Each structure stands twice: as C-alpha cells, then as structure tokens.
Amino acid sequence: MIDREPGTGVRAQPRLTVVSGPSGVGKSTVVAQVRKLDPDIFFSVSCTTRAQRPGEVDGQHYHFVDRQRFQRMIEQDDFLEYAEYAGNFYGTPRQPVLDALAAGRPAILEIELQGARQVRAAMPESQLVMLVPPSWETLVGRLTGRGTENPDVVAHRLAVAEKELDAQGEFDALVVNTDVRQAAAELLTLTTGRPS
C-alpha cells in the first residue's frame, strides 16, 4: 500500500525506521508482529561473518559472507552501519534500504544502539524508535528468567541495557513493550504514518 499524506492524495515520503532497545525487551518479537500486520514494509536482512546455524536460511535470517567479502563491503561503503560482536561482523547493507524507500516502501531496521547512531549519521532523516520495557524490574525478570546464561553474562547485559536506556533522549519516539500486539501496532503507525 502506498502512503498518502492525509487529505492531499499526494504520496508521503516513505521513512526508514530504526528500532533499538536493550537485550530482553522483545525487539525481534515486536518486529515479527509488525511483519505480520503489514508485509509490504521492507525489513532489512543483515550481513554477518558468523557461521550459519541449523535452521537458518541465507538471505532470510542473514546474508552469510566471509570476512574478506565483509571487509570489501566496508571499503566500498556498502553498509549503513556495521559492528563487531564476539569476533564476528554484522552490518546493514545500504542499497536494499535505499531501493525500498525509492520504490515507496517504508523500511524497518532492528539494530543495537551503536548501529542506530551510525544510521542516524548516514541518514539523518531516519526515524529512531526505542523499544523499552514497562519497568526496569520487568527487564531484569526477562533476562534472569531465561535461565540459559551464567550470572556474569546477565550482569553484563543489564549494565549494557542501563546505558542503552540512558540514551532515550537520542530517539524520536519510545514504544513501551507491555503487550506485544499493542507495541507492534504503535510501531506500525510510526513506520507507515497511518493509524493502525
């Protein structure tokens, strides 16, 4: 569906929305719900140098590339943002996002804070949305309730989450993830400019 400026019949400028927020806040779940609500929105697929895991599909979950190719892409300025985590590189290819916007499709990126800052620097017109928990206690419960990581890892994630939440002032909008469907509806409205 092509966006129209309300009451004008003129096509609205599609926007790039960058969704960020601390680990455990539910970014992937909310973005997956937005995908169900509006399949016309472009969702960027990141490149990574990490190994493909069982069940992952190249081009759907990630574009899996070797380090040499990733380095060439950095040198050619092919990324809107990129970073290294745990010895692997991750990056958002620039051209597919630009192509989607040029075709009139709003686009969503789901990335961490440093990547959001890089995108804002590369595309100042992009919209930054932070997904936040209803409370700090809720986030602590989500991260400790998983029971899959040792306490040191959880403590590190909570320290990082605190710094990320402190950056709320850099964002254009906040969406509180109390309810996934409600949060997805709010994010959809922000992304498309249409009431959900």
Rank of each mutant, 00 (worst) to 15 (best):
D3P: 13
R4M: 13
P6K: 04
G9S: 00
V10F: 02
A12F: 07
A12M: 08
R15P: 00
V18L: 11
V19G: 01
S23T: 09
V25L: 08
G26S: 01
K27P: 06
Q33S: 07
R35A: 03
K36D: 14
L37M: 07
D38S: 11
I41D: 03
T49D: 15
P54I: 03
P54V: 04
E56C: 04
V57M: 01
D58W: 06
H61W: 06
H63N: 12
F64C: 06
V65I: 14
Q68C: 06
Q68D: 13
Q76Y: 09
Q76H: 14
D77E: 09
D78L: 08
F79H: 02
L80A: 07
L80Y: 08
E81H: 08
A83H: 11
A83C: 09
E84C: 08
Y85D: 10
A86K: 04
F89C: 07
Y90V: 00
T92A: 02
P93D: 03
V97K: 03
A100H: 08
A103T: 00
R105H: 06
P106C: 08
A107I: 05
L109E: 02
L109Q: 02
L109M: 08
I111T: 12
I111D: 08
Q114L: 06
E125K: 09
Q127N: 12
L128C: 05
M130D: 02
L131S: 05
P133W: 04
T138H: 11
V140I: 15
R142V: 07
T144N: 02
G145S: 12
G145F: 05
G145T: 10
G147S: 11
E149T: 08
V154N: 01
V154Y: 00
H156K: 15
H156F: 15
R157F: 05
A159F: 06
D166M: 13
Q168W: 15
Q168A: 14
E170N: 10
F171S: 12
L174S: 10
N177P: 12
D179V: 15
V180A: 10
R181V: 13
E186D: 14
T189H: 03
L190Y: 08
T191A: 06
